[in-house]
């Protein structure tokens, strides 16, 4: 069925959830086309994009039936990952069918929104990108509060990684991809992961030692490195 479907990903390489979806497709040899949709250039707020994703966020996907021309769209990176797994023949380990194992992955994916994403993408935006790109410095107190999401998230991740090689068990799941694409950004805020050694080793394994994921990250690493004058990794 999926062989007649063309997949388009609306992507900004500086967005962690976009990098997660693109990394996942590359790791699984899922063919796709990219449409660059820049957040900084406010492209997500354009009326054409609103038709693709009314939530006006990236990533979003469009599936086009190459025979009938029928189109279907979806937003939210975790919904996209789950959908790709449900519709493509992929190894079970990414998102196990067994309800107990699946609950572990879902638990991570649901927790992610209000913890690691807050501590990573949102904090890094406030601390680094807002002042550098938009000349907007946030009050120290607000930064301090946002930072607690990062340390609290890392403590829980350290605990999970003390129990198993990956966040949700002995095999890599979509939780690891989503988390790694978030956390790699903290490299650019002079933040030392050494207090969370298991997380540090896991992140190295997930990004630096994974050629596919590392390659997807190159444009972002270059951008962040130029912005901060810091080495890429």
């Amino acid at each position: 069925m999926s062989s007649t479907k063309k997949l388009i990903i609306y992507n900004d390489p500086n967005s962690a959830p976009c990098r997660a979806v693109v990394s996942f497709c590359k790791l699984n040899n899922i063919p796709f086309e990219l449409v660059e949709t820049s957040v900084a250039k406010m492209q997500v707020f354009q009326p054409e994009f609103k038709k693709i994703n009314p939530i006006q966020q990236i990533p979003a996907i469009k599936e086009i039936d190459t025979q009938t021309g029928e189109e279907w769209t979806l937003g939210e990176s975790h919904a996209i990952l789950r959908y790709l797994i449900n519709t493509r023949q992929l190894p079970d380990h990414w998102y196990p069918k067994e309800p107990r194992l699946r609950a572990k992955v879902d638990q991570y994916l649901d927790w992610h929104h209000t913890f690691l994403r807050q501590g990573s993408s949102i904090f890094v935006f406030m601390k680094l990108f807002a002042p550098k790109l938009f000349q907007k410095t946030l009050p120290e107190e607000q930064l301090k509060f946002q930072f607690t999401y990062l340390t609290r998230s890392l403590s829980l991740m350290e605990r999970w990684l003390a129990q198993s090689k990956y966040l949700c068990g002995e095999q890599m799941t979509i939780a690891d991809i989503s988390a790694a694409c978030e956390l790699i950004q903290t490299k650019f805020i002079a933040f030392d992961l050494a207090k969370w050694p298991k997380v540090q080793a896991w992140l190295k394994h997930m990004v630096e030692e994974n050629p596919t994921i590392l390659e997807v990250h190159q444009p972002f690493l270059k951008f962040a490195s130029e912005l901060t004058g810091q080495a890429k990794l």
Binding site: I55, L74, G75, E76, S77, H78, A79, I80, R82, Y83, N86, L109, D110, H113, T114, R117
Partner: peptide, 13 residues
């Protein structure tokens, strides 16, 4: 199912 997931993911933020 994906459209339900999309809502559930949006919900948090």
């Amino acid at each position: 199912r994906a459209k339900i997931d999309e809502y559930l993911d949006w919900h948090h933020n």
